[in-house]
């Protein structure tokens, strides 16, 4: 070890402050009421309803994102076309959009008075204040996380692998399904974990676009907001679950990042 001068001490103190400040609220969630209380609160009808709704809506959003986003990301990663940079930027815009703006945007587009409101009404599709609306909001905010990861993962696939597949008799669709997707698997999985994490935490856009009705649009983050004034322990219990799931997702992303990428260089 080198000498421990005052500068190193200052650095260490700074890191300690950062760690303490960032970890303390998370620890407090578990410690404030104690595990027994938390578990009891999770037994409440409203908590279970909110978690179940969160699970269903986030998985539905994730399914839509992966189903539509994967081929779209592949196109962006493997083709050059005019305006590609503009398209990529447009896709990334929701990443930096304030959630309230996202909510207003969704209302302006798909709300009853929105651009497509009349059209959706004619088609018999109701989004606002409906579970479907939650899924739309989640898809909107979470999709860019997946698209960015998937595009980068596809771009990193050795183009020779796809060419090899073609010369071995595979159509472009088969090369995509059998070679590109498995080769980009690690990046795609990380993208899914990130998008899912973002969808689970979604609050603002959902609240504005779909409202907060228990059992219909009140996902876990909205339930936390609804409970914290009246039943703080219930809010803590839901938060604890979200912390656990988020931590698990983060860990997944880290672990995927660490495994030597499928197709990576080896001895």
């Amino acid at each position: 070890m080198g000498r421990r001068g005052p500068f190193v001490v200052a650095l260490t103190i700074a890191l300690a402050v950062v760690l303490l400040f960032l970890i303390l609220p998370v620890v407090a969630i578990f410690v404030d009421a104690g595990p027994g209380e938390l578990l009891r609160s999770l037994g409440s009808e409203q908590a279970r309803e909110a978690l179940w709704l969160s699970l269903r809506t986030t998985l539905a959003a994730l399914a839509i994102i992966v189903l539509v986003g994967t081929p779209a990301a592949y196109l962006l990663a493997t083709r050059e076309f005019r305006g590609k940079a503009a398209v990529t930027t447009a896709i990334e815009l929701p990443l930096v959009l304030p959630p309230a703006v996202a909510g207003i945007g969704l209302l302006a587009a798909f709300g009853p008075e929105g651009l497509f409101g009349a059209w959706l009404d004619d088609a018999g599709i109701e989004l606002v204040l409906q579970t479907t609306g939650v899924i739309v909001a989640l898809t909107f905010v979470a999709a860019p996380f997946y698209l960015r990861q998937a595009q980068a993962a596809f771009a990193a696939v050795d183009p020779n692998l796809l060419d090899a597949a073609r010369t071995l008799g595979a159509s472009e669709a088969r090369a995509f399904a059998r070679v590109a997707i498995p080769s980009a698997g690690a990046g795609i999985s990380a993208g899914m974990a990130l998008a899912w994490g973002r969808a689970l935490g979604e609050f603002g856009a959902t609240l504005m676009f779909a409202g907060s009705f228990p059992g219909i649009t009140q996902t876990a983050p909205l339930a936390i907001f609804a409970e914290f004034a009246t039943d703080f322990t219930a809010a803590l219990a839901l938060s604890a679950v979200l912390v656990a799931v988020s931590a698990a997702l983060l860990l997944t992303v880290k672990l995927i990042g660490r495994t030597p990428l499928l197709g990576g260089v080896s001895a």
Binding site: L161, A164, A165, P182, S183, L262
Partner: peptide, 8 residues
């Protein structure tokens, strides 16, 4: 040139 074997 690099044989392009499918790694997975």
């Amino acid at each position: 040139q690099d044989y392009a074997l499918f790694p997975q």
